[in-house]
Amino acid sequence: MKKRSFTKLIAVVGVFATLLLVLAGCGNSKKSSSQSNNPSSVQQIKKNGTIRIAVFGDLPPYGWVNKDGKRVGYDVTLAHKVAKDLGVKVKFVQVNANNRVDALNSNKVDLVLANFTVTPERKQVIDFAKPYMKVSVGVVSPKSKPITSASQLKGKNVIVTKGTTAENYFTSKQPDVKLLKFDSKTQQFNALKNGRGVALADDNSYLYAWSKDNPKYTVGIKSIGPKSYIAPAVKKGNKSLLNWTNKEIDKLTKQSFFVKDYNTQLKPYFGKEVKPSDIVLPVK
C-alpha cells in the first residue's frame, strides 16, 4: 500500500516537473528564435511564391465563404490584391477572433487581414500597418426593448465575442456591465436571439449589416468608446513586410481601391444607413 502511494507521489511530482521544464523552455528560447530568421519577410514570401494570410471564414461581409465554397469579402478582396501586387499566390488560413495574435506569433501566417482592430494592448505583441478602415463599438438590442445609452446596461448581461474590441472596451471601461462571452460570431448572435442578454456589443459596421437583415433588432448605441481603426497586422519585428504593407495601403488608398472594395463587398450589406466615408479612410 505504502509503495503504491509513493509511486503516485512520484508521478504527480514528475508531471509538474515536466510542465515546469516546458514553461522554463519557453522563457529561455524566446530571444534566440525571434531574431535568427524571419520566415515572413518580403524576400522569403517571394521566394516561396505564396503568402499566407489569416482571414475570417464566418464574418460576412468582411471574410466569409459563399455557397460555391469560395472565400469572399472586403478583407479577402484586399488579400487577393496584396498577393497580386507581391506577385505571389495567396494561401488563406481561417482564424477566430481570439487566435489572430497566436497565428502570427507562431509563424502560421505572414499577414492578418481579419477585421483586426488596432489597440494599444495588441500593439505590444504584434505590429500593425497603416489602417484601411475605421469603426467603433456599437450595441445592438431588440427593437421592443431598445438600449440607447450605456447607463441602461449596468448590471445587465451583454453578449460579446472573446478577443474583440467590444470585450476589451467593456472589461476595462464599463466594469459594471456583466459580459457573456462567446467563441464565435455564430454563437453570439444565437445567444442574443435566445434572449441570454439584453444587448450585444461588437464593431458597429458589422452590427449595421446584421440589423439590416434582422429587422427585429436595432443598433441603439451607434458608437461607444473611442473610434478605432482596422489595419493589417504582421508579426512583431517583421519590418520588411510591415514597410511593404504600409506602402501598399498608401498606394491603394490613393487609387481609391477601398471605395471600390466598399461598393462591391460592403454596400449590399449595409444599406443606406452607412456611407463609404463612414468606413473608408480619406486620402491624406
Binding site: G57, P60, V65
Partner: peptide
Amino acid sequence: LLISVMDVINIGQQIIEANNHTHP
C-alpha cells in the same frame, strides 16, 4: 476548429454565417 483545421464543424459555421441573413 480552434487550430484552423477545416473540419465538419468549421465548415458548418461558415455555411451558417454565410446564410444567416437569408435563412435564419
